[in-house]
């Protein structure tokens, strides 16, 4: 079975982002970019499936600018076998990405797609569910455990009240939550090897998809800032303030 792992190039999670002065977006010039952390977890899960003999090939795919090759090389260094870059400049919305991924999943006859539950830039949390819908497949979102069976998979999901176990038919789309695994660091020999692994370049036209945005971003604002309050000296003073000043207890 082939496993497809879509990965996104995003602002590194350690970077404190700044809103542009003209409110047109977030400053991306000269900012460190990395693989979306949830997608790293997805790559790790796919590579583990291959190591356990449950997957034959792991294919990493990214939709983005030419520089997205870097995150694909990272995926290859972690253990993916080959990569596909669909080059698109500018912002691509989850719906467009899902349409492109559908093209790849169909062409490659993938049996499983694993991707992060959300990207830490737009925080949309949509692509996996949309891809599953477009393919007419089942979905196991926010996964903290995946057990592949014969023709189906048992997925444990992180839900509001705790955990939920479901059985999904294969082929399926699984989205990775934080606790699915701890991704490995690529070793230097593997980083060198990754440079020789195949990376195909494609365009949206190769999949018959037109890139169009359905949401107009009117502006991007700073969030409302909270004012720092006061320091109190003792629990007694705190209780007095909470009772008489704030009125919350």
């Amino acid at each position: 079975m082939k496993v497809l792992v879509p990965v996104k190039r995003v602002v590194d999670y350690n970077v404190k982002i700044r809103v542009k002065a003209d409110n047109s977006g977030v400053e991306l010039a000269n900012v460190k970019m990395s693989m979306n952390p949830f997608d790293e977890i997805a790559v790790e899960e796919a590579v583990r499936l291959k190591e356990a003999g449950k997957a034959d090939e792991v294919i990493a795919v990214s939709v983005g600018p030419a520089q997205a090759q870097d995150v694909l090389r990272t995926a290859l260094a972690m253990g993916a076998d080959r990569a596909i870059l669909i080059t698109v400049d500018g912002t691509t919305e989850p719906l467009t990405v899902a349409k492109l991924l559908k093209g790849v999943a169909t062409e490659e006859e993938a049996g499983l797609v694993i991707l992060g539950k959300q990207a830490i830039d737009d925080d949309a949390n949509q692509t996996g569910q949309m891809l599953s819908a477009l393919l007419g497949w089942s979905q196991g979102t926010f996964a903290s455990e995946v057990e592949l069976g014969d023709g189906s998979a048992k997925v444990t999901r992180e839900v509001d009240g705790g955990l939920q176990a479901i059985e999904i038919k294969l082929p399926a789309v699984v989205t990775a939550d934080l606790r699915l695994n701890e991704p490995r660091y690529a070793s230097l020999p593997n980083i060198m090897k990754a440079k020789k692994k195949p990376l195909d370049q494609k365009t949206p036209a190769d999949y018959g998809v037109t890139v169009e945005n359905r949401l107009n971003v009117l502006r991007v604002e700073e969030p409302a800032q909270r004012e720092a309050g006061i320091k109190v000296a003792s629990p007694a003073e705190l209780i007095e303030k909470l009772k008489n000043e704030a009125g919350v207890i």
Partner: peptide, 8 residues
């Protein structure tokens, strides 16, 4: 396509 197993 999918079925419920259990809530924990």
């Amino acid at each position: 396509l999918s079925s419920f197993v259990q809530n924990i």
